[in-house]
Simulated assay, not measured.
Amino acid sequence: MDVCGAVLAAGAGRRFGAVKQLAPLGGRPLVQWAVDAACAAQALDEVVVVVGAHGDEVRGAIRPGRARVVSCAGWEEGLAASLRCAAGAAGDAAWLVVTLGDEPRMTAAAIDAVVAAARSAPADVAAVRGRWGERPGHPVALRRELLHAVGELRGDAGARELLARHVVLEVECGPAEASVDVDTPEDLRGLTS
């Protein structure tokens, strides 16, 4: 069973006020943390990193390891464009496992746990997603049969509405405070204090 991981890192980070993907955290660019977690996940057969805004800068600053970096031409549209790009890059993979480039505390263990649940999920389960405390979040594994519907997504919205129409299995990945996304410089400072 082929499983493709995708790190979505194409956004402009307007709320951040700078190139968010490259903001320094612990001696590495912010996005590098997510790339490293995906590359370390043993359950992923392939990893893609989707870039868009500041794509050349991000591509030049990260160490992709075993990941393949792909450019999302329509990144200005928002998250839906990144998801469509990731789905296209996944090819014939049985599952696409989505993580975000602004979640530096994502772990390979969380990704592997979601993939393990996806591999053993009943056929009616369209997606498997991580749960952090009481909050659903990433990683999100989408079954191949659901990827055609990803192609219909538009705008700056992820797959939340799509998942609401399908059977989704949730996997406990850790406490809520372990799942932090960075939207502002204050969020980043909160990780370093």
Rank of each mutant, 00 (worst) to 15 (best):
I111S: 03
A43K: 02
A43F: 01
E161M: 07
E46M: 00
W33A: 15
G133S: 03
V35S: 03
G137A: 09
L146R: 01
D102T: 08
A127Q: 03
D124Y: 06
D36H: 02
V168D: 01
A67E: 09
A53V: 03
S179V: 00
Q32K: 04
I62C: 02
S71E: 05
D156S: 01
G158E: 05
D124Q: 11
G151M: 10
H54G: 13
R63C: 07
E57Y: 03
M106N: 07
G190F: 00
M1N: 10
D102N: 15
T192A: 14
D156N: 15
F16M: 05
A89F: 06
L153R: 01
V167F: 00
R135L: 11
V69W: 02
D36F: 08
E170R: 13
E172W: 06
E177Q: 10
R14I: 02
A86V: 05
R131M: 12
H166E: 12
A87E: 06
R131S: 13
V47D: 11
E77T: 11
R144I: 02
V150R: 09
G5N: 01
I62A: 10
E152F: 00
E161N: 08
A109E: 14
V125K: 01
M106T: 12
G130A: 15
P29L: 01
A12V: 09
E161A: 14
C85V: 02
Q21F: 01
G5Y: 08
A10Y: 06
G52P: 09
V19C: 15
G174Y: 10
V182M: 10
A9N: 09
A53I: 04
A86E: 12
L153Q: 05
W132F: 10
A94G: 11
E57I: 01
P136M: 04
G158I: 06
T107Q: 06
A118F: 01
V180A: 14
V31M: 10
G11L: 02
G91D: 04
L191F: 13
V7I: 04
D92Q: 12
T192G: 02
A127I: 06
V115C: 13
R84S: 07
G55C: 00
G155P: 01
L153V: 10
A141D: 08
P24V: 07
A157Q: 14
E186I: 01
T99L: 15
A90C: 13
A117I: 02
V35F: 07
E77N: 04
I62Q: 07
A116V: 02
V128C: 13
E46K: 06
V168N: 01
